[in-house]
């Protein structure tokens, strides 16, 4: 652990002012929590979580749409992450329908191939890291009984929106390492704020923090890359190409956010046959959130979970009110697990 300690010492030696950084990646949050990183950071360096958990930012209407598909008798294939996310009337896990947890889209296609008499719908969530895998599967001509409910989201439009709000006093961003593995980081260079692409080992994150603090100290902003072993400026060109061959951006709502222009991915018209919404006439309805839940503010980085008056009382990991309490990576859940006792 010598390296980690060294980097940590460097970080401590560099931070001489109040600094708040935002990461936008649930896996970053999970890694930070798992390593207890916040407990060793300089006390004047804060890391907050932005809208980086695909479970947290999936609006209730999309969960309800998945439940509609269950009701229509489809086999619904999903990542385990979505299983317990509450829709308006229960979760996929409690639906009693034929819901299968899959490792990835290719396993959902396999189910469709093995059970040609059944309709199989893959609930396709995820950021730019995940969308290309779905694109690859669609381009490989899956059987007719297969389709997807596309719930994909893109990171840069949300970041742009956040920066426009100007509400949160953020000094910089830790960029999502695996999104950038695919997309590169060129498109982040337009944001006038210190940014560092970071990986997911505790040392990766510490390195990223050091680089961000350095930019702040220097009074500059650029995109630094603390994860060069996986990320390049241009990313995975092939993956990007496949993704845009199959999907096109469109305006869509995020949980806790309004409709953000060009922030979602939908299937292009030529792949309409694989679009579960078209195929089963499923409409995605807007569902108003619980009035006191401040997930939106938490996801925007302007509040901490502990600022919510439901936190730990009405809203607990067992009886989640907002999406931030549902996902393993939800800020409220992680806060509850790892931080509440410290208060």
């Amino acid at each position: 652990m010598a390296v980690g300690k060294e980097i940590l010492d460097t970080l401590h030696s560099l931070v001489d002012q109040e600094i708040t950084l935002m990461h936008i990646c649930g896996t970053h949050e999970a890694a930070i929590a798992r390593a207890g990183l916040r407990s060793v950071l300089p006390s004047n360096l804060k890391i907050v979580m932005g809208p980086g958990c695909p479970v947290c930012i999936t609006p209730q209407g999309e969960i309800d749409a998945a439940l509609d598909l269950v009701e229509k008798g489809c086999i619904v294939a999903t990542y385990g992450d979505l299983l317990r996310v509450p829709g308006s009337k229960g979760s996929l896990e409690s639906s009693g329908g034929d819901v299968r947890v899959v490792q990835g889209v290719h396993k959902a296609v396999e189910i469709a191939r093995n059970e040609p008499g059944r309709d199989v719908v893959f609930i396709s969530v995820g950021f730019e890291t995940t969308a290309p895998t779905v694109a690859a599967a669609i381009l490989a001509n899956p059987p007719e009984n297969f389709s997807i409910l596309s719930c994909h989201r893109l990171v840069p439009p949300a970041m742009a929106w956040l920066l426009e709000q100007g509400e949160a006093s953020l000094q910089g961003f830790i960029l999502p390492g695996h999104v950038c593995t695919v997309m590169g980081y060129e498109e982040y260079e337009r944001f006038p704020v210190p940014q560092v692409v970071a990986g997911f080992e505790p040392e990766d994150i510490l390195l990223g923090l050091v680089m961000a603090v350095q930019q702040i100290r220097e009074g500059v902003h650029r995109v630094d890359n603390a994860y060069p072993r996986a990320v390049s400026r241009e990313g995975n060109v092939k993956a990007k190409r496949l993704m845009y061959e199959v999907f096109e951006p469109f305006d869509v709502e995020w949980r806790g956010f309004p409709v953000i222009p060009k922030s979602g991915l939908r299937l292009k018209p030529e792949f309409a046959g694989y679009d579960a919404q078209e195929k089963y006439g499923i409409e995605i309805r807007h569902v108003d959130k619980h009035s006191a839940c401040i997930c939106d503010k938490v996801l925007r980085g302007v509040a901490r979970p502990s600022d919510c008056r439901l936190f730990g009382k009405v809203c607990t990991p067992r009886t989640p009110v907002g999406p931030c309490m549902v996902s393993h990576e939800g800020a409220c859940k992680i806060w509850h697990l790892y931080e509440s006792k410290r208060a």
Partner: peptide, 22 residues
């Protein structure tokens, strides 16, 4: 006490774990 020198709680899990990709 984590490898990096941090500290965190080990909590009893809620519900059976479910495979996750994110």
């Amino acid at each position: 006490r984590t490898a990096i020198g941090g500290e965190r709680f080990i909590e009893p899990p809620i519900g059976d774990p479910v495979p996750r990709v994110c």
